[in-house]
C-alpha cells in the first residue's frame, strides 16, 4: 500500500489533504484496456466524491475515445495513467464542473511508450463560487517513441473570481521527432458576447448558461457517439440550471 501523499508531491499540490487522508488508501485503479487493432469508446461520469484511479492500456494501433464528466459535491480526484503502444490513438475529453467550496481534480499522465501514437486531450474546467478546479496534464514521450503526435488543450472558465483554477501542463520528451501542441488558458465569460445575447432578448442567467455550455461542448466534440455526447451536454445544462 502506498503512503499517504503530502502537498509536497507535485501531483497533490492543490488537493484537499484532509479529504485525501479520510479517503486513503484509494481503491485499486480501474483498468481500461483496448487490445491491438481494436477501437472503443467510454463515458465516465463522476458524481460522487472520492479518489478515482484509472489505468488505460492501448495495444498497437488500438483506439480509445474517452469522455469524462466530473461534478461532485465533495472532493473528487480522477487520475488517469495511459500507456500507448505503437500507432495507438487516445482521444480524451474531460470536464470538471465545480460550485460551492468543492475541490476537484483531473490528473492525466499520457505515456507514449512506442512510436507513431497519437493523443488528443481537451479539458474544460468550469468553476463557480469558492470551488477549486485543477488539471495536471503530463505527457511523457519515450526515447524511441518517434513521430509521436500529442495535443493537449486545457481551458478554465471562472464564473466568479472567488473560484480558483489550476492548470499545469508538464511535458517530458525524450524522442526528437515529436509533435506536441499544448495550450492553457484561464478566463471569464466574454462580456461582449453576453451583452450581444442580452440585447437580443436573452436574460443574463440564460446567456451565461448558453456561453458556458458552448465552452464545455468543446471537450466532448471528439465523442463520435452523438447520443452519448448529447447526454453529457444535457447533464452540463442541468448543472447550470441548478446554479442559476
Amino acid at each position: 500500500m502506498s503512503a499517504l501523499p503530502t502537498r509536497k508531491d507535485e501531483a497533490w499540490r492543490y488537493s484537499d489533504m484532509a479529504a485525501v487522508a479520510a479517503l486513503w488508501p484509494p481503491q485499486p485503479a480501474r483498468l481500461i484496456s483496448v487490445p491491438a487493432g481494436e477501437a472503443r469508446a467510454d463515458v465516465l461520469r463522476v458524481t460522487e466524491g472520492g479518489i478515482h484511479d484509472l489505468r488505460v492500456e492501448l495495444g498497437a494501433g488500438a483506439r480509445l475515445n474517452l469522455a469524462l464528466l466530473v461534478q461532485s459535491a465533495s472532493y473528487a480526484r480522477v487520475a488517469l495513467v495511459a500507456h500507448l503502444k505503437a500507432g495507438a490513438s487516445l482521444d480524451f475529453g474531460g470536464v470538471l464542473l465545480g460550485a460551492g467550496a468543492v475541490v476537484q481534480e483531473i490528473v492525466t499522465d499520457i505515456r507514449h511508450d512506442e512510436p507513431d501514437a497519437e493523443s488528443r486531450q481537451r479539458v474544460r474546467v468550469v468553476i463557480d463560487e469558492r470551488a477549486v478546479g485543477t488539471y495536471l496534464g503530463r505527457i511523457a514521450v519515450a526515447r524511441d517513441a518517434q513521430r509521436t503526435d500529442a495535443a493537449q488543450s486545457a481551458r478554465a472558465l471562472v464564473l466568479k473570481r472567488t473560484a480558483t483554477a489550476n492548470l499545469k501542463p508538464e511535458l517530458e520528451i525524450y524522442a526528437d521527432d515529436v509533435k506536441c501542441a499544448h495550450g492553457c488558458t484561464v478566463g471569464e465569460l466574454d462580456k461582449a458576447g453576453l451583452f450581444y445575447l442580452q440585447s437580443r432578448g436573452v436574460p443574463r442567467p440564460e446567456a451565461e448558461a448558453l456561453l458556458t455550455r458552448a465552452f464545455v461542448a468543446d471537450a466532448f466534440a471528439g465523442l463520435e457517439d452523438a447520443a452519448a455526447r448529447e447526454a453529457l451536454e444535457a447533464e452540463t445544462a442541468r448543472w447550470l440550471e441548478a446554479r442559476a
Binding site: D190, Q198, S199, R200, A217
Partner: peptide
Amino acid sequence: EPHERAAAGLFLGFQYPVEIPGVSNLLFL
C-alpha cells in the same frame, strides 16, 4: 434590463457584431 428592452421591441444593430464560438447562429436566434 437589456433583455426587457429587446422584448419591448428595441433592436440594436451593432457597429461591431460579436463573435460567439460554439453557439450557432440558428440556436442564438
